[in-house]
C-alpha cells in the first residue's frame, strides 16, 4: 500500500511544483501594476520605487519565487496589497465558509447518488428508471447559475421560507438549526450537478456489475437480487465510484466560486474575484495554489483509496 502511495507521489509533486511556479510567474506577467494601484496616479517615481522595493518586486523572478516558497513553508503568506490584512487570516476566514459549503454539497451529492442508484437497480422498474433518468438529465442540463436563480426565486422570493443568501449570523456551531437554513439552498445548488453526474455513473456501474458472471453465480446460489446489489455489486463498483467522486470534487470546487457569488456566501470564491480585480498578487497566488494543492491531494487520495478498496491491487500476485 505504502509502495503504491510512493509510486504516485512523485508525479503529484511534479504537478504541484510546476503549477506553483506557473502560478507565480503568470501572476507577475499580468498586465496592470500593483504599484500604480497602491501608489495612486499622482505618485512620484521615488515613491513608486520605494513601494516596489518594499514589496520585493525589484528582485529577479526566480529569487522572488524561492523567497515565496520559503515564506509558504513558514505559513507566512504575506500581506494583502490592497485589503492590507494578513493573507493568512483572509484565507482562513474564507476557507471555513467554503469548506463547510463544499463538504456539505459533497455529502449531499454522494448520499443522493447512493440512494438513487441503488433504488434504480434494486427496483429495476421501468417507471422508476424513467423518472430518475429524466430528473438526472435535467439536473445535469441546468447550469449552476440557473438552478441557483430558480432556487432563490422559489424559496426566497415567491415563498420566502429560506434566506436568499449570506452566512448564518451566529456561525455554524452556536445555532445549527439556523445555520442549516442558510446552508441548504447554496449546498443543494452546488450538489445538484455533481450529484446527478455521480448518480448517472453509479447507476451505470451497478448495472454493469449486475451483468457480471459472478452475479449469475450468486443468483444461482439463491441469494436475492437486493442482497447481491447491496453486498456485492456496490462493493465492486465502489473503487471506480471513488475515483469519479474525486473528479467531481474538482467540479464542486470550481462551482463553489459561482454558488458563492449567487448566494453572497463570503468564501474563497469571492475573495479570489476580489483579489484578481484588485491585482492583489500575494492573495491571488495563495488562493490559486491552494485550489491546485487541494485538487492534487484529493486526486492522490482517491487513487490510494481506489487501490485500497481493490484487493487485486492491494494484494498483488496471481495464482498461475
Amino acid at each position: 500500500m505504502t509502495h503504491y502511495l510512493l509510486r504516485r507521489l512523485p508525479s503529484a509533486l511534479v504537478v504541484l511544483a510546476v503549477a506553483s511556479f506557473g502560478i507565480f510567474a503568470m501572476v507577475r506577467m499580468v498586465p496592470g501594476d500593483p504599484v500604480s494601484t497602491l501608489a495612486g496616479p499622482d505618485a512620484t517615481p521615488e515613491a513608486r520605487a520605494a513601494i516596489r522595493a518594499d514589496l520585493g518586486l525589484d528582485q529577479p523572478l526566480l529569487t522572488q519565487y524561492v523567497h515565496w516558497l520559503g515564506q509558504l513553508a513558514h505559513l507566512d503568506l504575506g500581506t494583502s496589497y490592497r485589503i492590507g490584512g494578513q493573507v493568512k487570516d483572509l484565507v482562513a476566514d474564507g476557507a471555513v465558509n467554503t469548506i463547510v459549503l463544499t463538504l456539505t454539497a459533497l455529502l449531499l451529492a454522494s448520499l443522493a447518488a447512493l440512494v438513487c442508484s441503488v433504488l434504480a437497480v434494486v427496483l429495476d422498474n421501468r417507471w422508476v428508471n424513467a423518472a430518475l433518468s429524466f430528473g438526472n438529465t435535467l439536473a445535469i442540463a441546468l447550469p449552476t447559475f440557473v438552478t441557483g436563480l430558480v432556487l432563490i426565486l422559489l424559496f426566497a422570493v415567491v415563498l420566502p421560507v429560506l434566506p436568499a443568501g449570506g452566512t448564518p449570523p451566529d456561525g455554524f456551531i452556536a445555532r445549527p438549526d439556523i445555520a442549516a437554513q442558510y446552508l441548504l439552498l447554496p449546498a443543494v445548488c452546488l450538489a445538484l450537478g455533481a450529484g446527478a453526474a455521480l448518480t448517472r455513473f453509479l447507476t451505470e456501474a451497478l448495472r454493469t456489475e449486475m451483468r457480471q458472471p459472478y452475479v449469475t453465480t450468486a443468483r444461482a446460489l439463491g441469494i436475492s437480487r437486493r442482497r447481491i446489489v447491496l453486498t456485492q455489486a456496490l462493493r465492486n463498483a465502489l473503487p471506480s465510484a471513488v475515483t469519479v467522486l474525486g473528479i467531481q470534487f474538482g467540479t464542486l470546487l470550481g462551482g463553489a466560486v459561482l454558488v458563492e457569488a449567487i448566494f453572497t456566501w463570503p468564501g474563497l470564491g469571492g475573495l479570489i474575484e476580489e483579489a484578481i480585480s484588485g491585482r492583489d498578487y500575494p492573495l491571488v497566488q495563495v488562493l490559486l495554489l491552494l485550489s491546485v494543492t487541494v485538487f492534487v491531494v484529493i486526486q492522490l487520495l482517491t487513487d490510494v483509496v481506489h487501490a485500497w478498496l481493490d484487493p487485486r491491487i492491494r494484494i498483488g500476485g496471481t495464482g498461475s
Binding site: V18, G22, V27, L253, G255, V257, V284, L288, F295
Partner: peptide
C-alpha cells in the same frame, strides 16, 4: 504532464486565473 497540469485546475478557477492574465 501538461494535461495533468491544466486538468489540475477546476475549470472555473482556471478561467479566473486566465482572466487575470
Amino acid at each position: 504532464r501538461v494535461f495533468d497540469l491544466v486538468l489540475a485546475f477546476p475549470t472555473l478557477i482556471l478561467a479566473i486565473a486566465l482572466t487575470a492574465f
